[in-house]
């Protein structure tokens, strides 16, 4: 298995915020989801991969050229006054593999009007025009920043389907950031979990979901020591809940409820747990 992207010890500092020593790889043929709260550093890392900013230290290695990267950012980098047709006119010369048939097909699928100006498009439509471009120039790697935020559930599902469709060809990969965990749960093969500029998990989604279990139980069920292995511990009037590593279950009382955990709960517990340690 070869990688399309490798980040090694990526660091970058801004006043009041820094990304520290981020390393991960993206193998060809897979979808990687970048998870983290707003402001965790996802966009900065994506922009560095695209070459818009440079890291202070560390390396970024890409196994494809710039024309082979399809990009979807939160706001399109097109001139506001362009119409949809002009987007194609102005961008297609930059891509040797531009496919006008595919582009026309995506416009139709997304119900995008060629005569409409970029500035007149809704948030969802702005995302879709970018996606239409990204999918129409023979890209090997898609980099998408929050492609599903601001979309309704049906439109989000369509985007997720397109991403899965894209990696049917095992030479292609997708890296997308999202804080909508249900979309990641449905599409991502790999998860990179970012909290305050640090990677807290990078690996397969399946292994992440297997690593942790959701636990709940009554008040006073745990000793102080047992309580320490609960991540994102939350106590309420009639009991407590949180998550723990599956391996820690054997040192916890067997009477606790322990069940499969959703990515959503991992996200919440990890972020809560991180705050606790500050």
């Amino acid at each position: 298995m070869t990688n399309i992207l490798e980040l090694k010890n990526f660091s970058k500092s801004y006043p009041g915020f820094s990304i520290k020593d981020v390393s991960f790889t993206l193998p060809k043929g897979y979808i990687c989801g970048f998870v983290g709260q707003n402001g965790a550093g996802k966009t900065t890392i994506l922009k560095s991969i695209l070459g818009f900013t440079r890291p202070d230290s560390g390396t970024i290695e890409l196994a494809c050229c710039a024309e082979e990267i399809g990009v979807v950012m939160e706001a399109p980098m097109y001139v506001d006054e362009w119409t949809v047709a002009e987007v194609e006119m102005n961008l297609s010369p930059f891509y040797p593999a531009w496919d006008c048939v595919a582009f026309a097909r995506y416009l139709e699928q997304f119900a995008l009007d060629r005569k409409k100006k970029i500035k007149a498009l809704s948030r969802g439509m702005k995302m879709k025009i970018q996606l239409a471009v990204a999918l129409s120039h023979g890209a090997k790697l898609l980099i998408l920043d929050e492609p599903t935020s601001g979309l309704d559930p049906l439109a989000r599902d369509e985007v997720c389907d397109l991403l899965r469709e894209f990696v049917l060809d095992e030479s292609r990969s997708v890296l997308f950031s999202s804080h909508i965990t249900s979309d990641l749960e449905k599409t991502a093969d790999y998860i990179n979990f970012l909290i305050d500029g640090t990677i807290v998990y990078a690996g397969t989604k399946d292994a992440l979901l297997e690593k942790y279990v959701r636990v709940a139980g009554g008040l006073g069920a745990l000793s102080a020591e047992q309580k320490r292995c609960i991540i994102g511990y939350r106590e309420h009037g009639t009991g407590f809940e949180g998550m723990c590593e599956r391996a820690h279950l054997r040192i916890l009382p067997q009477t606790l409820l322990a069940e499969a955990i959703a990515l959503d709960d991992i996200f919440i517990c990890m972020n809560k747990g991180a705050k606790l340690h500050e």
Binding site: G29, I31, D161, R164, V167, A188, D189, T204, K205, D206
Partner: peptide
């Protein structure tokens, strides 16, 4: 793709 799950 059909089952909307990971290739892994």
């Amino acid at each position: 793709r059909d089952l909307k799950i990971s290739v892994i």
